[in-house]
């Protein structure tokens, strides 16, 4: 989900936190924070805190070697030069092993203070992905306007304008289809359509996405994982 936004990432491993990643794209506009709790894994063991510097394109090449149904075991030594990846099918009569070179990555780490949030929107992840993709064809900027009874996505481009308005509703049968708006104060913020399209690459990871918006501040887009999260912080655009 994140390899088009960032190329090199440090994966921090610890027994208590599981795997955490913070990465910022080269333009310093999009920050990615990933947390995969230890409980997400069938087995997780980390005797000593470890930083694995990975080239995501290379990691992706290795991960594609396995079949979906296979078990994947990732292993690294105490002061590793390589990450080992072992795929095994259920009957353990096919085993494939790969080793991926690790890198020393010197990356910025930003401190994100707890933010006051003006509004929180939860909507189906596929719905947000469709809006982000469709609106990008109209404009390189997407404005999100939230009031207590609607969230409006608005694009103004060369060929014309477009908007999608969603109203809050609760779907009792399929809660993940609901649209929820929690509002402390109304917000209107504009974001780069390109970055929103990078963010929605996480769509398959979660049925819903939660968007937290605060006036004149970066937005938080959160995809909850079964045990952990993938968060994107996106700096807004301002009227020039």
């Amino acid at each position: 989900s994140i390899k088009d936004s960032v190329k090199l990432c440090n994966f921090n491993c610890s027994q208590s936190q599981g795997i955490t990643v913070q990465a910022i794209d080269d333009s310093r506009v999009l920050l990615i924070a990933l947390k995969i709790d230890a409980g997400s894994f069938q087995e997780f063991r980390c005797d000593k805190d470890l930083v694995l510097g990975l080239d995501l394109e290379s990691l992706s090449k290795i991960l594609k070697q396995g079949n979906n149904e296979e078990y994947l075991t990732l292993m690294a030594e105490d002061s590793p030069d390589n990450l080992m990846a072992v795929f095994e099918d259920k009957k353990k009569d096919r085993i494939s092993e790969f080793s991926l070179k690790l890198m020393d990555i010197d990356s910025d780490v930003l401190t994100i203070d707890d933010m006051e949030t003006d509004c929180t929107i939860t909507l189906p992840a596929y719905e947000f992905a469709k809006i982000a993709k469709d609106m990008k064809t109209l404009s390189e900027s997407l404005k999100i306007v939230v009031t207590k009874d609607s969230v409006k996505f608005n694009a103004e481009g060369q060929i014309g304008t477009g908007s999608v308005i969603l109203k809050p509703h609760t779907d009792m049968d399929k809660p993940e289809e609901s649209v929820k708006i929690e509002l402390n104060s109304p917000v209107a913020l504009t974001f780069g359509a390109k970055y929103l399209n990078d963010i929605v690459k996480a769509t398959s990871l979660s049925s819903t996405v939660t968007i937290k918006l605060t006036d004149k501040s970066p937005a938080l887009f959160e995809y909850k994982l079964p045990s952990g999260y993938l968060r994107y912080y996106l700096a807004p655009k301002f009227d020039d």
Binding site: S27, V29, L31, L110, T190, S217, F238
Partner: peptide
Amino acid sequence: KYKQSSLLSFFTNS
């Protein structure tokens, strides 16, 4: 007509 802001103007480097 819009100017893209940077995360560095909101978050501190640690």
